[in-house]
């Protein structure tokens, strides 16, 4: 909306906007043409038809584009700048996200790890961190989990919780899906949940989680021990905390210039971008923030000498 108003203030009259508008829409249409060509190719439309269709539209749109480029100085350049900037930002985001994801190390949730979790969960000598501790994970299988999640739980002081949840949010390619899978890794101690959310659904993960926990309790797949902490609480499943982990660029890095620039830009974007709790629809009162360093490329051996 703000951008729209700025446009009105800059151009003032519709006839001044025509050049910018035409150029921007021509470019969008050209890109759609390219994508449609690829689409027709996978649909196995005869090659001759694809060539005909594509060359027809390319000819039409290229003519429009050339005519519109003529008016670049009449305001068309603004759209090129806006479009170029947005493209740049989105590509940086994409690049940063993929290189970050490549670095995420996972471990098997072996019986040993699960035993450790069960043990911690029932160890009444440790102060309880929360009744339910929910980790948002990128692992969609119940067998693996990111190392950083286990680190976050076990590193001293250990975080004890009655129930550990590993929650994976999967945005599906269908618009309105809303489903979940739940599996108990250790009954009443560790659960893995996959939420399938359609891309048009607002992800109110907080709300969905409560619904899932209620449903599991109703079906008898989950129950809470009566502990001293919960004696006075009338709530069904006590408190719950989402642990949201954000990586940051560690000082240990030694990156070539371009990668350094892209990755730093990505982290700067993250700072101003939409925050994960808003993104997932988590109520702020239920969120614990954690930050962990990421090392993309280890710095060289340093020579630090004692004198």
């Amino acid at each position: 909306m703000v951008a729209c108003i700025l446009m009105v203030l800059h151009f003032r009259e519709s006839k001044n906007m025509e050049a910018a508008f035409g150029l921007s829409v021509t470019l969008t249409m050209l890109i759609t043409t390219f994508l449609i060509t690829l689409y027709l190719k996978i649909r196995k439309v005869p090659l001759i038809a694809i060539v005909l269709i594509t060359s027809l539209f390319l000819a039409v749109e290229m003519s429009f584009l050339i005519a519109n480029l003529q008016k670049l100085h009449e305001g068309g350049w603004i759209m090129l700048v806006v479009g170029g900037l947005l493209t740049g930002l989105m590509l940086i985001w994409y690049y940063g996200k993929t290189s970050q994801d490549k670095l995420i190390a996972r471990t098997q949730l072996s019986p040993l790890v699960l035993q450790k979790l069960k043990d911690l969960s029932t160890n009444s000598k440790i102060r309880n961190h929360a009744t339910n501790l929910i980790y948002l994970t990128s692992s969609d299988s119940p067998d693996t989990i990111e190392n950083r999640v286990l680190d976050s739980i076990f590193q001293a002081p250990a975080k004890r919780a009655d129930i550990y949840w590993f929650l994976h949010v999967k945005v599906t390619d269908e618009p309105y899906t809303l489903q979940y899978e739940a599996s108990a890794l250790a009954i009443n101690d560790v659960y893995h949940v996959v939420l399938h959310i359609g891309f048009r659904i607002e992800p109110k993960v907080d709300l969905f989680f409560r619904k899932i926990a209620m449903e599991l309790m109703a079906k008898g797949e989950l129950s809470y021990e009566k502990s001293e902490e919960r004696k006075y609480d009338t709530d069904d499943f006590g408190d719950y905390r989402f642990v949201v982990a954000n990586s940051f660029l560690s000082y240990d890095n030694n990156l070539p210039y371009w990668r350094n620039f892209l990755i730093k830009s990505y982290y700067n974007l993250k700072l101003i971008g939409v925050k994960e709790d808003v993104n997932f629809g988590l109520d702020a009162s239920n969120v614990i923030w954690e930050r962990y360093p990421l090392v993309f490329a280890k710095a060289d051996q340093i020579t630090l000498v004692r004198i």
């Binding site: 151009f11 519709s14 025509e18 994508l35 947005l86 493209t87």
Partner: peptide, 24 residues
């Protein structure tokens, strides 16, 4: 990916300029 990202970016750009020109 690059094509789709560019397309998405210009689609947003279209969305910025369309309301002003239509209403104006």
């Amino acid at each position: 990916v690059v094509l789709a990202v560019m397309g998405g970016a210009f689609l947003i750009a279209d969305g910025i300029i369309t309301p002003p020109i239509s209403v104006a």
